[in-house]
Design a protein around this nucleic acid. Structure first.
Length: 726
DNA sequence: CTAGGGTTAG
C-alpha cells in the first residue's frame, strides 16, 4: 500500500527531544500508549520519523505484544517512514508470534522504499528466519547480505550463527564462527548456545574452554549456556565448579542466571543445593518456581511438588504441564489425567500443545480412547496448530488405543511430517503386526527425504520381528551403519536377536551376540531367553538367564521366563528351585493388570480381582463363558499357570481369574457390538488367555482388541492377527 | 541491531 505524502515539517526535528517522549518509557498499559499516541498526533510529533519509531518500539514491548495489529496501524499512519522506521517494524514482527510477517514487511519495503536494507535490517530478518526455522529463507538473506557487502558485520554474522544453529545446521554455524575475523562475546555465546541446545554439551564446554584460552571474558549469558550444557551432562562435580567459577569471576548475577543454576543442580541430581539457591534468590519468577516443582517430581516427591505448585504466586500453563508430564512420565497416567481434569475445571490456564501432548501420552498408556478422541476434537475446535509433537502424540495415542485407521488418517493429513511423526506411524503399524506396511512406510519416508534416526530403526526392526520378516530385518540392520551412518545400539541388537530367535535361528542369534561390538546388555539376553522359550531350548535358556541375572539380579521377568520353559518340559524340580530362589531374594513377579475404558472411565483389574462394583455380574459372566467353552472342547493350558511362580495352589480356577479374562467379561457386559472390546494389559498376554480370547471372539461374535506389553492382538472369528506368533 | 532460564512426541 502507498502512504499519504505529507511534507515533513522541519520543526519536527526539534521535537525529537520533546518531553512527551520521556512519557513513552513510563507507559504500562495499552490505554496509556494510546494517550501518548494521541498527544503525538496532536502536536505533530508523530510525523517525526524518530519519535514515531519510538512509539512503534513501545507498542512491541512484551506486555503489549498481543497488540501487534495496533503497531501495524501506527506504522501505516506514518507518512514517510524512513529506513529506521521500517527496521523497527521488521524487528517488532521478528519477535512476535508471527515472524513470517516480518519477512512480508521486508518485501513490501523493497517495493515501496528506495533505499536498500542496511546492516540493521539483516539481523532482524535473520532472526525471523530462525524463529520459523526456514533454512531457505535465511540462506537467501545471507546471500543478500553478501551482495550488499555486509557479510563481515559482526552483528549479522552472529545472527547467522544463531540462525544456522537453530535450523540444525551446526556445521555451517561453526564454519561462520571460524571465519569471523574479530569475534566478540556474542559470537562465542551464540556458538556455545547453539551446541548446548543441539544436545552437543561436550562441544559447548570445549568451546567455553577455548574461549578462556583466548582470554575472551565470559558474561552471564555465556554462563547460562555453559550451565545448560552441564545439566545435559548430569555432571554434578563439573556443575559445582561452574557455579563457583561464576562467583569467583564476578559474573553479574541475574534472575535468568540463577534459574539456570537452579536447573543445573536439579538436573545433576542435587535437590539440596537447588533448594539452598532457591531460598536465597533475591527475585523469583514462574520459571524459578517451576524448576523447583520439576525438581521435586524428578525425585518422586509429588507431595512436595504439589506444595510448590500451590505456593507459587501464579500457576501458568507451563507449571500445570510440568505436573501432568511428571505423572505421565513416571508411569502414573491416571494422576496425569486427574491434573488435566483439574486444570479444565479451574480454568486458570488454557491448555496448550504441550498440555495435550502429555495428556495424549497418558491416554495412550491407559488405552483411554474416549478422552484421546475428545482431545483430538478439542485441538480442532480450539484451532490449535498441529505441530509435529502433537501429530506424533495423536498418532501414538490412536495406535496404542487400537484405532490404527484413525492413526493413519492423522498421519495422512499432517501438514508437516518430521522423523518423529514418521517413526510413530511405523511403530503403530509394527505393533499391529503390519510389518510389510511398516517397511513400505519406511521407504516412503526416504522418498520424502526425511532422514531416519535410531528410533526409526528400532521401530522398523520391531515391525520385522512382529511380522516374522527375517530377511528384511537383516537387510535393514546391516544397512544401518554403512548406509545411514547410525551405529546399532543395544536396543537394535535386542530387536535383531528377537527376529532371529523367533524364527528359530537360535545359533545365528547367539553368533550375533558374540560378535557384538558393545557388551551385550539385559535386553539382548532377554530377547534370547524369550526365543528359547518359544523354541524350547533349555540349555541356551539357562545360559541366557544366568547372563541376564548377572546384569540385573532382580529381573523377575528372567525367573518367570525360565520357569515357563522348565514347566513346558515338565522339569518341576527346576520350577521349584527358581521359586525358592525368588522367595529367598524377595523378588516378586510384577502383578498382571488389565485396563478397559467404558464410557470414558478406565477400569482396572488385577488377577482374581473382586473390587469392581459389578464384580458379581463379572464372575457369573465368567462362569457362563467357562461352560460354553467346555462345550466346544476347550482344555485349559495349565503350563501357563506356572508363569506365576508365586502361586502355591495350582488350580484350573486360578487360570480363569487372570486379569485379561476379567476385563473381557466386563467388556462383554458393559459394551455393545459392533464396538470391539478393548483391553490393555501391562504384561505379555498368557497363552491360555490368548486361546480363550480367540474362542470368545467366535462364540460371542465379538471383536476383541488386546494390547499387551509388546503388541496388539485383534481377535476376530476365532483367529488372532498375530497368527499365534508373538 | 546479534546470544540466555522452566513444561512436549518415538
Amino acid at each position: 500500500m502507498t502512504k499519504p505524502k505529507f511534507k515533513t515539517n522541519n520543526q519536527n526535528r526539534n521535537l525529537a527531544g520533546h518531553p512527551i517522549l520521556a512519557l513513552i518509557d513510563q507507559c504500562s498499559d495499552r490505554s496509556q500508549v494510546k494517550q501518548v499516541h494521541a498527544q503525538m498526533l496532536r502536536i505533530g510529533l508523530f510525523f517525526d520519523p524518530y519519535s514515531a519509531s519510538r512509539l512503534i518500539t513501545l507498542c512491541t514491548l512484551s506486555t503489549f505484544s498481543p497488540d501487534i495489529e495496533y503497531t501495524r496501524k501506527v506504522f501505516d499512519q506514518i507518512p514517510q517512514p524512513n529506513l529506521y522506521t521500517w527496521n523497527t517494524l521488521i524487528r517488532a514482527y521478528a519477535s512476535s508470534p508471527n515472524p513470517t510477517q516480518s519477512i512480508l514487511i521486508f518485501s513490501q519495503m523493497l517495493h515501496e522504499f528506495p533505499d536498500p536494507p542496511n546492516k540493521f535490517t539483516f539481523p532482524f530478518l535473520i532472526k525471523a528466519a530462525s524463529e520459523i526455522c526456514d533454512l531457505r529463507q535465511g540462506e537467501l538473506f545471507h546471500g543478500m547480505a553478501i551482495k550488499a557487502s555486509l557479510d563481515s558485520d559482526v552483528y549479522i554474522l552472529n545472527s547467522l550463527i544463531h540462525f544456522y544453529a537453530a535450523c540444525g545446521d551446526l556445521n555451517q554455524a561453526y564454519k561462520l564462527f571460524l571465519k569471523i575475523p574479530k569475534r566478540d562475546v556474542v559470537s562465542w555465546n551464540s556458538m556455545i548456545t547453539g551446541f548446548a541446545q543441539a544436545d552437543c554439551p561436550d562441544e559447548a564446554l570445549e568451546l567455553f574452554r577455548e574461549m578462556e584460552e583466548e582470554n575472551m571474558k565470559p558474561n552471564d549469558v555465556t554462563m547460562v549456556s555453559v550451565l545448560s550444557a552441564c545439566s545435559k551432562k548430569s555432571n554434578l562435580a563439573f556443575g559445582r565448579w561452574v557455579h563457583s567459577y561464576i562467583e569467583k569471576n564476578g559474573i553479574e548475577e541475574s534472575l535468568i542466571l540463577n534459574n539456570a543454576i537452579l536447573d543445573m543442580y536439579i538436573k545433576c541430581g542435587s535437590l539440596e543445593e537447588a533448594k539452598r539457591i532457591f531460598d536465597k534468590m533475591p527475585e523469583r519468577d514462574p520459571i524459578s518456581w517451576t524448576t523447583m516443582l520439576v525438581g521435586y517430581t524428578s525425585f518422586g516427591e509429588f507431595d512436595a511438588a504439589h506444595h510448590v505448585f500451590n505456593e507459587m504466586p501464579s500457576q501458568d500453563i507451563a507449571a500445570w504441564n510440568s505436573l501432568i508430564s511428571a505423572y505421565e512420565q513416571s508411569g502414573q497416567p491416571r494422576q496425569a489425567l486427574a491434573i488435566f481434569h483439574e486444570l479444565q475445571l479451574s480454568k486458570k490456564a488454557k491448555p496448550d500443545q504441550v498440555t495435550l501432548v502429555s495428556t495424549l501420552s497418558a491416554c495412550a498408556q491407559l488405552g483411554a480412547t474416549d478422552l484421546g478422541g475428545w482431545i483430538h476434537v478439542y485441538v480442532k475446535k480450539q484451532g490449535l496448530k498441529l505441530n509435529c509433537h502433537l501429530t506424533t502424540s495423536l498418532i501414538d495415542m490412536y495406535a496404542k488405543c487400537g484405532d490404527l485407521e484413525k492413526a493413519l488418517e492423522v498421519f495422512q493429513f499432517a501438514e508437516r511430517k518430521d522423523v518423529y511423526v514418521w517413526s510413530a506411524m511405523i511403530a503403530g503399524l509394527a505393533m499391529h503386526g503390519r510389518g510389510r506396511d511398516a517397511i513400505d512406510l519406511f521407504l516412503d519416508m526416504q522418498e520424502a527425504k526425511v532422514k531416519p534416526n535410531e528410533v526409526t530403526f528400532t521401530n522398523v526392526l520391531c515391525a520385522c520381528s512382529h511380522a516374522g520378516l527375517v530377511e528384511e530385518g537383516k537387510l535393514y540392520f546391516n544397512q544401518m551403519l554403512p548406509v545411514y551412518g547410525i551405529a546399532p545400539q543395544m536396543k537394535h541388537y535386542g530387536c535383531m536377536v528377537d527376529i532371529l530367535g523367533r524364527a528359530g535361528l537360535l545359533e545365528e542369534a547367539m553368533e550375533l551376540i558374540e560378535k557384538m561390538p558393545i557388551v551385550p546388555g539385559a535386553s539382548v539376553w532377554g530377547a534370547l531367553l524369550g526365543a528359547c522359550r518359544t523354541h524350547g531350548n533349555i540349555g541356551l535358556a539357562e545360559q541366557a538367564c544366568n547372563r541376564l541375572l548377572e546384569l540385573e539380579p532382580r529381573n523377575h521377568g528372567a525367573y518367570v521366563l525360565l520357569s515357563n520353559i522348565y514347566a513346558k518340559f515338565g522339569k518341576w524340580d527346576g520350577v521349584s528351585r527358581l521359586r525358592k530362589l525368588m522367595r529367598d531374594s524377595g523378588i516378586k513377579k510384577e502383578p498382571g493388570c488389565s485396563l478397559i475404558e467404558v464410557d470414558g472411565v478406565v477400569h482396572e483389574f488385577l488377577v482374581g480381582d473382586n473390587s469392581h462394583s459389578l464384580s458379581k455380574m463379572i464372575y457369573s459372566k465368567l462362569d457362563e463363558i467357562a461352560s460354553r467353552l467346555k462345550l466346544i472342547g476347550y482344555v485349559p493350558n495349565k503350563s501357563q499357570l506356572l508363569q506365576d511362580v508365586e502361586e502355591e495352589d495350582v488350580k484350573e480356577q486360578a487360570l480363569f481369574l487372570h486379569s485379561e479374562k476379567l476385563a473381557i467379561a466386563y467388556g462383554l457386559i458393559s459394551t455393545n457390538p459392533p464396538a470391539p472390546v478393548r483391553i490393555v494389559k501391562n504384561l505379555r498376554v498368557c497363552g491360555d488367555c490368548h486361546s480363550v480370547a480367540k474362542l470368545i471372539s467366535r462364540l460371542y461374535d465379538r471383536e476383541i482388541l488386546l494390547r499387551d506389553r509388546y503388541r496388539f492382538h485383534h481377535f476376530k472369528g476365532g483367529h488372532c492377527s498375530c497368527m499365534d506368533y508373538w
